[in-house]
Every structure is written in structure tokens, then in C-alpha cells.
Design a protein around this nucleic acid. Structure first.
Ligand SMILES: [Mn+2]
Ligand SMILES: [Mn+2]
Ligand SMILES: [Zn+2]
Ligand SMILES: [Zn+2]
Lengths: 140, 140
DNA sequence: CGGACGATGCAATGCTATTGCATTGTTTCA
DNA sequence: TGAAACAATGCAATAGCATTGCATCGTCCG
């Protein structure tokens, strides 16, 4: 067993490959949510498209979730262990810092369940807050 | 007084021009939030960049608000009369239909005020729900 | 009239996401 | 074992949205 990450991938029915292990490591190592460009940069010399498809596979298998924070680029973050592509356990809010442009998960802030008037059928709810993150707020 | 919309623009300190009156009319006529491409299409032969700058001006003056619904394109919708660029009165949720790709304001659904742990400074909160709109849900 | 300023429109560019296709590598099975 | 089948990769190309540069036009003053 070379990498402990292999089990993580296999558990989600993702064939482990060197590239996928590298992307997973980067996601595990960084606390903030990462965009495609972020991952590409952190990996050094990785092909952008392969990383893109890796993240797409991870999303489809329930290993990561997508965060649309309005920054223009979709961010990705690891899911909780219990998540599946259909039923995510980690339905939490996200925070986008307008100063350092970092996006972070707020695992303690649950997305509220809201009853809509009329015949709306809600499939997904996203709650994004913008402002200054803890670092930037204290840095002035 | 040629157009009744002129007063609306003047009240927001926006110089009325033919293009701006046309864009405002389109926004008033359509209940759903509109993207830049939507407005361009509805206007017929309008220059995309001019419409873009018109919407930017409208946003800066507090006449419309931006909606980032994750569709890839930013949507725009008219604000309530009391809104200013700094203090929006209409802090409501939005709904994006995954079938017809229309985005609508939910004026009756207020964005919840959420206290964040730590030193976060929230400037703005966005609550977007995805699913089937009333039309698409009843159409099956 | 002539300058100042704002609005407009065309061209060009940047950035993100996505697809096509050839190649490589690995698994499967006769 | 060897060939077919399949998945993953990487380069090229494309699409779509947003934004900037710059020249032009029009209007408002002085
Ligand atoms: Mn998250
Ligand atoms: Mn709205
Ligand atoms: Zn920050
Ligand atoms: Zn719909």
C-alpha cells in the first residue's frame, strides 16, 4: 500500500492513478476550497484539462463538492466521509473573502431548509456569504 | 416628459439616454432576472458592450442587483424603490430553474441573518435555490 | 465657436470551461 | 501470451462570458 489516499479513492469507486492521488493530496493539504487554476498551480506541471476531468470525476463520485462563490471560477472542497453524489451530508454555508479571494467551508453553519410558496421543487440550496475572512479581518 | 422611465433614472442620478431607457424598459417588462445576453437579445440590435456598461451603471447606482446563480452568466433584476448601492432593501433569495434556466427573485423569502463564529465580517449574503420553477414543475 | 465631458460602438483581449481526438497504459479474456 | 477492450491522459481547438482600449459622437457650457 503505497499511498493511504488509495483507499479513499477506492471507497468512492474511483480508480487510483498518480494524477488523482496528487489532486487528492492537494485538496487534503489545503484547508480552503480550491479552483481548477489553484490546483493546477499547486501541482506544478499538471495538464489543466486532466485536472479538470479529475475534479469532475471526484464530484460525480461524491468525493468533493462544487462551490459557486461568484468569483468567476468554481471552487472544490472535500466532502465529509458520509457523502454520496445524490445525498450530501455536508450541506453547509460557504464564505468568500473579497480581500484574499479565498473560499472556505463553514461546516458548522447549516444551510437552512426553506419552504417555498407555490409549486417550486427545490433540488439544491446554496448559501454564500461574502466579506472578510478571519485572517483578513484581523489584519485590518 | 417623453418616457415615464426618465424619472426613475433621474431619481438614481443616472443620466437618461435612449439606450438606458430601452434597457430599463426591458427589465421592467420581464418578470424574470435577465443576463447580459438576454437583454441584448430582447433589444434586437444593441451593442453588447454598451448594454454591459449600462447594467454596470445601474448596479452601481442601486437600480438593479446582481444575481450569481451559478449558471455561468450573471443575472440582473430591478431593485425595490428604497434600495441604495450600499444598503439594499431587497435582500431576498433567488431561484434558478435547472430546466428552463430562468432565474427569479423570491421577494417573500428573506435571506437569513447568520452569526458566524470567529472574526468573520460578513458584507453580503446570497441564498440561491435550484430546482424546478412553478411552470416547469407543473409541466412535468 | 470651441473645449470638456460623458456615452457609445467597434476591436481586441483575458479568463474559465469544455470538447475532439490521438496516444498511452492497463485490464480482460480467448 | 497476445490481442482486443477500456480507461486515462495530454495536446489542440473551441465556446462563452466578461472586460478593457481606443476612437468617435453628441451634448452641455463657457
Ligand atoms: Mn463546503
Ligand atoms: Mn432579486
Ligand atoms: Zn481573506
Ligand atoms: Zn423553469
Amino acid at each position: 500500500m503505497a499511498h493511504p489516499q488509495e483507499d479513499t479513492l477506492i471507497a468512492r469507486q474511483i480508480t487510483p492513478t498518480p494524477m488523482r492521488l496528487l489532486v487528492l493530496e492537494v485538496l487534503q493539504r489545503h484547508p480552503a476550497a480550491l479552483s481548477l487554476a489553484d490546483v493546477e498551480l499547486l501541482l506544478g506541471h499538471a495538464d489543466r484539462i486532466t485536472v479538470h476531468r479529475t475534479l469532475k470525476t471526484f464530484t460525480e463520485k461524491g468525493l468533493v463538492h462544487r462551490i459557486e462563490d461568484g468569483s468567476g471560477a468554481v471552487k472544490f472542497a472535500l466532502c465529509e466521509p458520509g457523502c454520496t453524489p445524490e445525498h450530501h451530508q455536508d450541506l453547509h454555508a460557504h464564505f468568500f473573502c473579497t480581500r484574499c479571494r479565498e473560499t472556505s467551508c463553514l461546516p458548522t453553519v447549516a444551510v437552512p431548509i426553506i419552504a417555498l410558496p407555490g409549486a417550486y421543487q427545490v433540488q439544491e440550496t446554496s448559501l454564500v456569504m461574502k466579506g472578510l475572512c478571519e485572517n483578513c479581518a484581523s489584519a485590518g
